[in-house]
Every structure is written in C-alpha cells, then in structure tokens.
Amino acid sequence: MQELLRVEDLTTHIFTPAGVVRAVEGVSLRIRPSEAVALVGESGCGKSMTALSLMRLVRPPVRILGGRVWFKGRDLLALSEAEMRMVRGGEIAMVFQDPMTFLNPVFRVGDQVAEAICIHQGLGRRAAEAGALEALRHVKIPAPEAVVHYYPHQLSGGMRQRVLIAMAVACRPALLIADEPTTALDVTIQAQIMALLSDIRRELGSALLLISHDLGLVAEYCDRVYVMYAGEIVEEADVFGLFKGPQHPYTAALLKSSLNIDHRVAAFEAIEGQPPNLIAPPPGCRFHPRCPRAFEPCSRSAPPVVTLEGGRVARCWLHEDGR
C-alpha cells in the first residue's frame, strides 16, 4: 500500500514536577495520499500531542522518546531542524483551533500570508504579495484586496480561520493537519470551513489528518478513523465500518454517548467515571476501569492489538481469539 505518512511506535512523554505524563504511548498510524483520516478522542487523550510530535513542535518538558515518522521516505524525527522547517508549512501544513493565537495581532493579514509564501517558495516580496492575494482569493475571502491590509482583530472568527487555511495551503502541502479547526466556530460557519477544506483538498490532492472530538465531523468528512484513549490508539477502521460496528468497547460507548439531530435518544447512555491520570495509568488495559465489558485479563496485562477482517484493528482482549 502506498503511504504518504507512516508513524511507527511514537512515544511522547511530558516531564512534570508531579511525574511523567505518558501522553502518547506507542502510537502508529498511516495516511495515504489524498486520504482524509481522523484522530478522535476526548480531551487529554493525546491526540493533539501526537500531531505536535510528528511535526516536531514540542519542547521541554515535552519530549519525544521514540518512534519513527516516515514522510515521503524520510524519517522526520531524524531531520535537522533546518530541513524540518522546510517540511513544516511546506509539505505538511497545520491549521489550529484558535486562529487568534496563531496570527500575529500586530502584522497585517496580507504580510503574514506573504511571509509564509516567501519562506517556502523563495519568492521575492512583490511576487509573495501577489501570491498572498491569490491565496486569500483561493479560500473565498470576500474582497481580498481590502483584507490583505486588515489586522487579524478586524476579521470574524470564520474569516481568521480562512486566513489560516490560506497560509496552510499556499504551498500546496501534501498533508494538511487540522487540529480541531472548527471547535471555536458556530455551526453554520463550521459548515463553511469544512466545505472549504474539502474543496481545497480535492483541488490540491492533499491528504488530511483531522484531529477532533466531534464524531459528527468525523463521520461527515473522513475516510478512515483512529480512536485514541489515554495515549493509545484503541481502534482503527474505515469510517463506515466504525460507525456501523465499533470493535472496541470505548468506541462503542462514545457512539452511544453522542447525540444525533435525526432522532431522539430516550435514555442517555454515559460512560461512567473519567479518563485516567496519565502519570499513573491503570495497569493492563487503560480503559478497563470504565469498561462495561471488562473481564479477568483486562486489569492484569496490556491487551493485544488484533487485526480483524477488512484490515480493521482493535486493541482489546475481547478479540484475542481472532489473532
């Protein structure tokens, strides 16, 4: 299978005074060219930390302890910082949740977009400015000629997110990582931004890694899904298979807890308890204290990673026989 990105056994820990937080523990994932892949999970499960680690955007006390990140045949974790800087924002671009913390409030929007183009495409000032205008037009910002002169605070949340996307896609990245890109936005603006991302991806042929807690967004816009819990990938499946028949009890519980607009849920089904403290994660399966189907081996030893039919993967003792 042709792969654009292959993450193998990525481990990232946070060294805090209270102890070592095992935020990302042996995460492996693959993304094919032009595929839309979701990494879903609840707050603190390590999904953002995974993305930051593979972009090497971590600094102490966060440390990448091991693993490989293969991108187009190169191990990103072995590149020099200068080489990595050309990958970042060039071949792999990232869109964050809060555009206001990413945009510099004291520079004009056009200059910030032009800078990104300038660095990665080696263009001169004049050409980069023209490129910035083109990039803003590309993300369907109304009146881009005026908007290049605006400061970020003069734009609405949706428009800022468009500017961020303009910067991200200006260099035609092969992979776009979007970390909760619409969480801060209203639902109609969210729909606009997601539609824009889909259009641009189709046009450029970029792959997408969507990091989200929103199963609705994942269902609607992604092809394949990785479910993360307490620093580990617990299930991997194609989007249709996952929503039709989750193979890990955590995924099943998440689906039961999510509410849909097309029918009324008579009784709310909740996963009791809360995600574990990752300084001292539970022994065995990290989900077992909350798992409705936990049995004898779950609390004793780490569950096997089992490949099921259709190439699906689940990290659960329930599938042990399927090995």
């Binding site: 729909a191 609705g216 269902a219 609607e220 249709f240 929503f243 689906l255 999510s258 097309d262």
Partner: peptide, 12 residues
Amino acid sequence: LAASPMVDPEAA
C-alpha cells in the same frame, strides 16, 4: 439543521 454534523457517515 443542515449544518449540524450527523453521527452517521452514510446519512451524512
């Protein structure tokens, strides 16, 4: 309603 994501890939 149309903008609210549906937790069902086929329906969506």
